[in-house]
């Protein structure tokens, strides 16, 4: 494997966004790119990352390999990279280590690290292609704000989407709260728009602790997409350039 990223910031942000949710992960490398799928310890949430080969330049992967990496270790090494450093990942066939180099675009500084790999026996889940009943695309900062504000009151949030809009409601010991958003097009800045596409109304309840955690990915994208259907996991997607993505799935709370 040899994969060169123009900006180390992208990998730094991705790892930062998932490291509190999942610890030891296989980075599955093949000629289409680098993928990661992992459940959190309690098996409530699933992280699915895809960094397409087009996000790297150049990208070369001659044989499929799984790089078992401890994300705490990776975070320690990535801390040594500046956001605008050029990052290159390298691994040999049947590797013991993954090699990372960080090149400063402005100076002749080159740093190089090896991280020991782990043998991780990770089960892959089959994520079905789902036609979601409701898809909401909103500013990622708005979604972060909603989850943060409501998590101060309650452990869970009900998300209801109707043709009127989307409503986030919580009930807690001190009282209750809600935030409603309507479809809204911001003509000056499309990134601030709220788009709602609905085929049937949905109402689901989710743990806010996980949603707050997902919002650590907000720095990766101005926009976030929420996909909901009754009685299936919520999909929270942060799109990256070149069709790469970071997706989180969250199992709904079960009603009485």
């Amino acid at each position: 494997l040899e994969a060169r990223l123009e900006q180390a910031a992208m990998l730094k942000r991705v790892v930062d966004a998932i490291k509190d949710l999942v610890q030891d992960c296989n980075f599955d490398c093949n000629d289409s790119g680098i993928a990661l799928q992992a459940m959190d310890n309690s098996h409530v949430a699933l992280v699915s990352m895809m960094l397409k080969s087009e996000s790297f330049s150049p990208f070369r992967c001659d044989r499929n390999i799984a790089l078992g990496i401890n994300l705490t270790s990776l975070t320690k090494v990535l801390r040594a990279a500046q956001g605008d450093d050029i990052l290159t990942l390298k691994a040999e066939d049947a590797p013991d280590v993954v090699n990372l180099t960080f090149e400063s675009p402005e100076s002749d500084r080159l740093s190089e690290y090896d991280i020991k790999l782990m043998d991780i026996d990770q089960e892959h889940l089959g994520i079905p292609d789902t036609e979601y009943a409701a898809t909401i695309t909103l500013p990622s900062s708005e979604f972060s704000r909603i989850t943060r504000d409501l998590s101060a009151l309650s452990e869970s949030v009900a998300i209801e989407c109707t043709k009127e809009g989307v409503k986030f409601t919580c009930t807690g010991d001190i009282g209750n709260g809600s935030v409603s958003l309507r479809q809204h097009t911001n003509v000056e800045n499309d990134a601030k728009s709220v788009d709602i596409s609905l085929t049937e109304p949905v109402a689901l309840t989710f743990s806010l602790k996980y949603l707050v955690n997902f919002c650590k990915a907000a720095g990766l994208s101005d926009r976030v997409r929420l996909c909901l259907s009754n009685e299936v996991p919520l999909l929270v997607e942060y799109g990256l350039s070149n069709n790469s993505y970071l997706r989180f799935y969250l199992a709904p709370k079960i009603g009485d």
Binding site: M39, S42, H43, V44, A45, L46, E123, H124, L125, G126, I127, P128, S207, V232, P233, Y249, L250, A251, P252, K253, I254, G255
Partner: peptide
């Protein structure tokens, strides 16, 4: 976790 479904219930093992 009480009242919380598991993701594996929805997405079968490959």
């Amino acid at each position: 976790i009480e009242g919380q479904g598991s993701i594996a219930t929805f997405f079968g093992k490959k």
